[in-house]
């Protein structure tokens, strides 16, 4: 599904590359943790996959298509197949929970009836039934992140990218969120999650890709976090 070939990313003005000749494959339906110390290049990799940025060298293929060669329409299509979850949730505070999630479908020009149905369904799935009319400020951090996940999920993405989704959550809430991710993954969505939550990584026994200073240093099928704290 995803294939990186010798991908290097240099940001202008910094001597060391953020990513250095990374090659890897990710299959459909996989659950992948992206780990590594701060500045290792995890966020950069996620931005490249969303095609928010282009690699300096090397190629990224998504279902066989080179991400550097997408025209405008294909780029939109690419992004529409991907759900994004952020560390800081990025909810619109003047919109309710329902409206925040519905926004993802409005942007795609879906009909109100379909939106109503899909949003209720996905809020149910993430465990937020009954909170439709609340505003983000009235929710706990964990609940806010569930809204973020619901928004990413409501358009049935092929791939879900999450950059430190538990970064602002306590341990217990983080575990519940990871369990939600596991459920979503079981239903067929490929997951790539950049995280520092070492205990959860150790517990969940998923594929772990470790980056250090932009280099791929470890890639294990049932890995652990692998760094001491």
């Amino acid at each position: 599904m995803i294939s990186l070939q010798h991908v290097t990313k240099n940001y202008p003005g910094s001597a060391l590359p953020a990513l250095d000749k990374i090659s890897l494959e990710i299959e459909k339906g996989e659950f992948v943790f992206l780990v590594g110390p701060s500045g290792a290049g995890k966020s950069t990799l996620i931005k490249l996959l969303f095609r928010e940025q282009l690699p300096t060298k090397g190629e990224i293929y998504f279902y066989g298509r080179n991400l550097a060669r997408l025209n405008k329409k294909a780029l939109l299509n690419h992004r529409r197949q991907i759900g994004m979850v952020f560390q800081d949730f990025r909810l619109l505070k003047q919109k309710t929970v329902f409206e925040n999630v519905a926004f993802a479908l409005e942007v795609l020009g879906k009909a109100p009836k379909e939106i109503e149905y899909k949003v209720s369904e996905v809020l149910d799935k993430v465990g937020l039934a009954g909170k439709e009319k609340s505003f983000p400020a009235e929710l706990s951090g964990g609940e806010q992140q569930r809204v973020g996940v619901a928004r990413a999920l409501v358009k049935d993405p092929l791939l879900l990218l999450a950059d430190e989704p538990t970064g602002n959550l306590d341990r217990n809430t983080s575990r519940q969120l990871m369990e939600l991710f596991e459920t979503i993954n079981c239903e067929g969505t490929t997951m790539i999650i950049a995280t520092h939550a070492w205990d959860l990584v150790d517990q969940m026994q998923k594929r772990v890709i470790s980056l250090e200073k932009g280099r791929l240093v470890r890639d294990e099928k049932r890995g652990t976090y692998g760094y001491e704290f």
Partner: peptide, 16 residues
């Protein structure tokens, strides 16, 4: 601005 930033991540077209 914030909303527009999010719209980009949700795959909104430029004209939208």
């Amino acid at each position: 601005r914030e909303e527009i930033g999010i719209m980009k991540y949700l795959g909104a077209s430029d004209w939208f």
